[in-house]
């Protein structure tokens, strides 16, 4: 009871300091949140792009339905293959007309359908890198019923390069923002603790044990971190609503952001206050701390 009351009194009576601390923690967490939302969206886009990676295995003409089915089943069981879709000559023509309406007259002039039947082979996420795609393409191409296997080789290589650069950039940015947040928050809380250094000194003089000395400060740090985390999550959500409504829709992982911001705020508040009050308590009497 004393600990809770003391924490609340400390926060209230040092109102300006509390206000500044919550704002600084909020801003640090908000930046971190923006980074997280950005990361989620960038990797969301990459995932969608990777889902478009597919192999087109063109079949020889006049294969029996039975043979097509058998071949389809065999390919489906191959490592890395997600799904296999048969595209008949007629369907291929239909798709061609839909995708390239200007070239329809050219095809019609030929009188016969020149497009071969094929398999559209979708790959599992882990098999969308250039090396793996090529590996699967070579294995599929071994079947004598298959004429050729095509995939957008240069496009896949470009996508892979972009993913690698983005990943490195994202990780570096994440590390910088995380460290900056921890550093700024820890120092802000340290200032709030130092502002109440005399309280710690008096507590020691009147015979409070270390746990009693630290507990109100740690609780106050948790409250500051929690409030800042909740505000930053709320503001991020508001920004998400505004952008989605007036500009472009984007992915916002609501629960992970809210839980993440709150937990991150609490962790920062806890670590910041715990280390600050401990070191301040030690500073007050260096000799006693050596016991």
């Amino acid at each position: 009871m004393f600990i809770i009351r003391e924490a609340l009194i400390g926060l209230r009576r040092n109102g300006v300091m509390t206000f500044i601390a919550i704002n600084i923690i909020f801003f640090s967490l908000f930046l971190f949140g923006l980074f997280l939302v950005g990361t989620f969206n960038i990797f969301g886009i990459i995932k969608v792009a990777r889902e478009k990676v597919e192999l087109n295995a063109f079949l020889k003409e006049d294969l029996s339905d039975k043979l097509v089915d058998e071949l389809s089943s065999k390919i489906k069981t191959m490592v890395g293959v997600e799904s296999v879709e048969y595209v008949s000559k007629e369907k291929a023509l239909e798709e061609f007309k839909k995708e390239m309406p200007n070239a329809t007259s050219l095809i019609e002039a030929l009188k016969t359908n020149p497009l071969p039947p094929s398999f559209k082979i979708k790959l599992k996420d882990a098999f969308t890198t250039p090396g793996k795609v090529e590996e699967v393409a070579l294995k599929v191409g071994i079947f004598s019923e298959i004429e050729t296997v095509e995939y957008g080789e240069s496009w896949i290589k470009r996508l892979d390069r972009v993913v690698k650069i983005l990943f490195v950039f994202d990780v570096l940015l994440g590390i910088v923002i995380s460290f900056a947040s921890v550093f700024v928050v820890a120092n802000t809380i340290r200032l709030t603790v130092l502002a109440r250094k005399q309280t710690i000194e008096v507590m020691k003089l009147v015979g409070a044990n270390e746990r009693t000395i630290q507990a109100p400060f740690v609780l106050a740090g948790l409250i500051e971190g929690g409030i800042a985390g909740a505000i930053s999550a709320g503001l991020l959500y508001l920004i998400y609503l505004l952008i989605t409504r007036f500009f472009v829709p984007f992915y916002f992982p609501t629960s992970p952001i809210f839980v993440g911001m709150l937990v991150f705020g609490l962790i920062l508040g806890f670590i910041g206050s715990k280390t600050s009050v401990k070191s301040t308590s030690m500073e007050i009497s260096l000799e006693t701390s050596n016991l």
Partner: peptide, 16 residues
């Protein structure tokens, strides 16, 4: 011989 955790107990018996 006093231990760190005993110092508060001592201080509780002294006025300063």
């Amino acid at each position: 011989t006093i231990k760190r955790h005993e110092i508060p107990l001592l201080r509780q018996r002294i006025g300063i």
